[in-house]
């Protein structure tokens, strides 16, 4: 399991990776450990699945992706895994989950679809539906972003 130094590393990483030649060296110093130990621990965190990846986050509206829709379906239990695998390979789909249903809300399959226009979102959802033999899609377009942040794990 992760120890207090790992938590320190996670907290420092969450502040953002500096765009300098030796970013991990800078962060290691902040954690009070050597760069080598910092890199070793990153490799361990990667290995055990805690750290998924590191990289840039783009400002997607700025990058031209102005339309985003939450698209949900009702999918039979035994088709979920295959659909999840196929649909995750779609570039336009950033998130794909199954979720608990309620009597009033029977949808169990959730995707986030990003495109340049609503028309494109609609086309992508329609194609996904056709290719996976789904039906009854429901799209909820975003009209305003009130918050978009990274999770701050182990905030102090």
């Amino acid at each position: 399991m992760i120890d207090s130094i790992d938590k320190k590393i996670i907290r420092v990483l969450q502040k953002g990776i500096p765009m300098t030649a030796e970013p991990f060296g800078v962060m290691a110093k902040e954690c009070g450990i050597s760069t080598t130990e910092f890199l070793n621990r990153l490799n361990d965190l990667k290995e055990c699945g805690v750290l998924r990846r590191m990289g840039a986050v783009l400002q997607h509206r700025h990058a031209g992706y102005k339309a985003n829709a939450l698209c949900v379906w009702q999918v039979p239990e035994d088709q979920l895994d295959e659909a999840g695998k196929t649909i995750s390979a779609e570039n336009a789909v950033s998130h794909c989950y199954t979720r608990t249903t309620t009597p009033e809300w029977p949808y169990n399959f959730y995707t986030m679809i990003h495109a340049h226009t609503r028309q494109q979102c609609e086309e992508i959802a329609e194609r996904i539906e056709r290719e996976n033999h789904f039906s009854g899609r429901r799209l909820f377009y975003s009209v305003k972003e009130w918050k978009k942040a990274s999770m701050k794990y182990f905030a102090e």
Binding site: I10, L13, Q14, G16, I17, P18, M19, P23, C48, G49, V50, L51, R52, R53, M54, G55, A56, V57, L58, Q59, H62, A63, S150, M151, Y153
Partner: peptide, 13 residues
């Protein structure tokens, strides 16, 4: 164009 450089964690893990 770039929001930030960051690390992505598996929240379940």
């Amino acid at each position: 164009y770039i929001r930030r450089f960051g690390a992505f964690f598996d929240s379940n893990a």
